[in-house]
Design a protein around this nucleic acid. Structure first.
Length: 375
RNA sequence: GGGGAGAUACCAAAGCGGCCAACUGGGGCAGACUGUAAAUCUGCUGGCAAAUGCCUUCGUAGGUUCGAAUCCUGCUCUCCCCA
């Protein structure tokens, strides 16, 4: 269940608390992506004690292929398997079906796809993705959808949306006729699609609202469309999605994207950017974005980020991290990932404070100016 | 002392008469990355104009040829084997 705690006077931004069996999640929130049962390169301990992640993601597609449902079931669910006692959200695998184009075929029944690991053939349906997510036991689970690529023509987007809606009805039915396996309540979120077409997005938002689930998600964005398009779609969709339920913008995004979306009433985010880009040398700092591999940091012994979102941010220097990343040392990827995630978490925590404090808009504009800087 | 192999751009290493400013790898420099098939991928890497162009390079000094990193000669250096 979700309770709204405060609203910004100038914008649609709000703060809230999403209560789950594994703990409360203050919103707005950023959720680190832990696809295969791990936020790549980071110990659960650091995720909890240093980064203070409130909830992390897992992925149905990846966990289903490996370690597989038998092991997940035998281990007592994903929380126990990975030793993470806080909330987890699992994506349904819809995005993988989208990104594995060429290895899959969509039918009315579901998506037939080939494993990227061994080429074996499998099928995901609205029903079995619910079943798998019951086994995984995440606190929040997602309906199986098709994420239409950008650009999509209207005809394709409409057809795809109809399929997603048809699948949604089946997922909801399966969800209601099954029970959690591990004792913790699970929430199912529908996913709004419709590509960049306003009318399709409206229809989809209405459809999502009509199934009356615990929260709602917006998918199919940040797949290559201009950011203005994304912001416009968020405004349209959030004008329709119920106020009293959390809104989750899937896969987004840059710190600037997140602030813009919070302003438009989004409560939840996830993105691989802090970890993947971190591994590749991109650092989000209080001063701006830096590519730590660049020569100019070679003798810069100042801390990674004087604002110190994480312990590692103050403890290690730019010159040292550059050395680690350039050398391909695992520790470099770890430090960058920890710092970036802590930066993201601090960003949404600060946004929450500013919304409560009543100066969100002013703070947001100031932050955006800083975050647009490439150092 | 005798016999053999070789010297190519930052490094390693191809090329063995024109298609060579020179394959490839590393290194270096920069870029990309948005519900993770990503500790991945892309571009550039002699100089200058930076589009088509021009100039200087393949140990060194000469030579042969319309034309040489590639063929010939001298020199310098390196490595290997046998005494």
């Amino acid at each position: 269940m979700f309770v709204i705690q405060s609203r910004d006077k100038e914008t649609r931004a709000r703060t809230g608390l999403l209560r789950t069996a594994h703990g409360d999640i203050p919103t707005p929130i950023f959720m680190p992506v832990g696809t295969a049962g791990t936020v790549k390169g980071i110990l659960q301990r650091d995720l909890k004690d240093d980064i203070d992640a409130k909830i992390i993601l897992g992925n149905t597609y990846h966990l289903y292929l490996r370690p597989g449902t038998e092991i997940l079931k035998a281990s007592g669910g994903l929380h126990r398997f990975i030793s993470w006692e806080r909330p987890i959200l699992t994506d349904s695998g819809g995005y993988q079906v989208f990104s594995l184009t060429g290895n899959r075929k969509l039918t009315d029944e579901g998506a037939i796809f080939k494993s990227h690991i061994d080429g074996s053939t499998h099928i995901f349906t609205p029903e079995n993705t619910i079943d798998i997510q019951r086994i995984i036991g995440a606190d929040i689970i997602m309906a199986f959808d098709e994420c239409a690529p950008f650009p999509s023509d209207y005809r394709y987007a409409k057809k795809s949306l109809e399929l997603t809606h048809h699948w949604l009805d089946r997922a909801v039915a399966r969800f209601h006729e099954t029970e959690p396996l591990w004792g913790n309540e699970q929430f199912l979120f529908p996913i709004v699609q419709g590509s960049t077409f306003d009318d399709l997005r409206k229809i989809s938002a209405e459809k999502a609202a009509s199934v009356s689930l615990a929260g709602n998600a917006i998918g199919g964005l940040s797949v290559g469309e201009p950011v203005e398009e994304m912001y416009r779609i968020i405004e349209i969709v959030n004008g329709i999605l119920p106020e009293d339920k959390p809104r989750y913008l899937m896969g987004v995004g840059t710190p600037v994207n997140i602030l813009e979306a919070i302003e438009r009433g989004i409560d939840m985010f996830d993105c691989v950017m802090p970890t993947r880009n971190g591994r590749n040398g991109m650092l989000f700092t209080n001063e701006g974005i830096i590519n730590i591999r660049n020569r100019k940091w070679i003798d810069d012994f100042s801390p990674l980020d004087s604002d110190g979102p994480s312990v590692v941010s103050l403890y290690y220097s730019k010159a040292y991290l550059r050395h680690l990343v350039i050398s391909g040392e695992i520790l470099g990827a770890q430090i960058a990932s920890i710092h970036n995630l802590a930066f993201y978490l601090k960003l949404v925590t600060e946004a929450r404070k500013r919304i409560e404090g009543g100066d969100f808009k002013r703070w947001k504009n100031q932050m955006i100016r800083k975050l647009s800087e490439r150092l």
